[in-house]
Design a protein around this nucleic acid. Sequence first.
DNA 1: TTGTACGCGTTATCAT
DNA 2: ATGATAACGCGTACAA
Lengths: 359, 359
Amino acid sequence: MGRKRNEPGKVRLTEVAALAGVSPITVSRFFRNPDTVSAGRRLRIESAAKDLGYVPNLAARALASQRTEVIGVLIPSLTNNVFSDVLRGIYDAFEGSRYSIQLANTRYSVLQEERLLRLFLMQKPAGLIVTGVDQTAEGRAIVQAADCPVVQIMELGTDPIDMMIGFSHADACYAAISHLLAQGCRRIGFLGARMDPRVQRRLHGYQNAMKEASVFDPRLIVTTAVPTSTTMGGSLFSDLLLKAPDLDAVFCANDDLALGVLFECQRRHIAVPEQVAIVGFNDMEFMASAVPTLSSVRTNRYEMGLRAATMIMDEIEGRAVVERVVDLGFEVIERQSSTLQRAPASLQPASGRATGTKW
Amino acid sequence: MGRKRNEPGKVRLTEVAALAGVSPITVSRFFRNPDTVSAGRRLRIESAAKDLGYVPNLAARALASQRTEVIGVLIPSLTNNVFSDVLRGIYDAFEGSRYSIQLANTRYSVLQEERLLRLFLMQKPAGLIVTGVDQTAEGRAIVQAADCPVVQIMELGTDPIDMMIGFSHADACYAAISHLLAQGCRRIGFLGARMDPRVQRRLHGYQNAMKEASVFDPRLIVTTAVPTSTTMGGSLFSDLLLKAPDLDAVFCANDDLALGVLFECQRRHIAVPEQVAIVGFNDMEFMASAVPTLSSVRTNRYEMGLRAATMIMDEIEGRAVVERVVDLGFEVIERQSSTLQRAPASLQPASGRATGTKW
DNA sequence: TTGTACGCGTTATCAT
DNA sequence: ATGATAACGCGTACAA
């Protein structure tokens, strides 16, 4: 035998329809598009639904319509506050829309990513936002199978899955190093933690800049696979000082490290920027209020999330997305920590005001 | 007439069953609980599913079973990195489980919260994690209607909706102020931003401590509705200096502000802690590496998320949750920024090592 | 351990 | 603008 009959207390579309004196499909229409129902019935349905405390059943809706309004979002870390800005943009963009976000954390693992994509697939998502360009072949296949708009965020790469928005981490780092070189620095250290694909690309930018200036020295590079932190900035810097006591600048692959380096300098009474210049990456809020103010590379994280979400919605709703690969660029924010009077080519005032070089 | 028939390319349970030579229900059982299917059929089903590229349909599953494995999580902010720690705990706990998380951002608005709860309700969530205890009556009603385990996190309060885990913000702040008083400070400022309910409660703790010590002075309190930031810490401190030039300590309702105060002190050449002692709140990672190291109140955010999630799962899966209201406590971490030699009652060494007073 | 019969609550399709 | 009908893909209840 089948199961027992519908419980009497339950409120379905049918109950609302009965009370309003219309057919269920009219109620269904009312909830999806009120304008397609005549004013008189609209009111009757509205009050009937309220009286009964009707709550639409999303599962039934998804099953019948064969689609959902779920946007899957995959990020590698919840700890790294770079992603909180991106997420804020995404959530803001979907705010008030009918879409809801399904967030998952890959923990910088492509296998986790694969597993999570498979999970997403079961939900028949309306759109997908994934981080980076390093999906496995299998991962890409799963995404293709989802058959929905996809945006890769955070960086750029050849052959996007669908759409893409980000910037070149290598170029951004190259620009930061160029700035330091322009300030007269030659012994520029590189500090990196976690060493995920994007930090790796920053390292490449560093190497290129240093080699082109004929000042490359592998001893200037100190990295760790451990996640980033302020404390880690201090220890990496200490390591760097041992390997290269003559350094005159440090590029930090992110701002936490830079803050840690600043504190370590204070602890060791190393003058910033006179003895060691510092440049970070991401331009977190605190960089501008440090003493001295800390230079960094501004990346448009909030806008990235916002536009990624907008691209998804435009695509779903049939508005043609012409710019399918968006380079958001970056900006080297030159502050006190890397502004040297001795700078040969510096035309910038040595103030704490942010002066930007837009790429 | 009805709709057109099933597309031939589609892979359902039925297709897998046909290929494996079993009935659909056996395939269904296999996917939910492989052990209930005999080994022989298990293998046949497994390979049939793989060959056909079968992906379970979550909507159909939810509709048929009348339940989901979705846990709704409501937090007030994505920017405030206090919540990234909580979230990390939650995500870690659900990692590898069959549950998936639906995260939503209330932006510190109870009306938003209501709206989001209503949205969650449509999904028939298996569990709910909500922030704080200040839900509207309507909000509480919606949560009740969800008829699933609920955990309120971040703080404690009378009459929990269901379960609760957090700590007393008033007590935590009271303890921090007591520490400063014990160090000999009397003119202790209070800096607060955003002023959400939990910061308000910290302010109450401050007021009680100050009044009990007969050193309360409203001019020592500077707050703003604007969200917290390091820069804001600097400006609030500047405001405070104007209102109370004779202050000897500052309690900051969160660590960002404390960092901003430290920078402002550096900028003004105010000695920390000799002229002004500083204590923050939350004990973010950077506090321990600042110069001087910054005192703070440690809150167990990661554990809070982890345990909240565990409580939900235990409840869903029928394991009795005996401790339904959990006080996670806090710890005043005394570092250099608030350790004064002149301290009359100080028995702690004036080192940068964290010394804890556990409540 | 496996299968049968039926319904979960909604929407697509076609017809009026 | 509204309604009748069938189907969405799966799990529950019960039987064997």
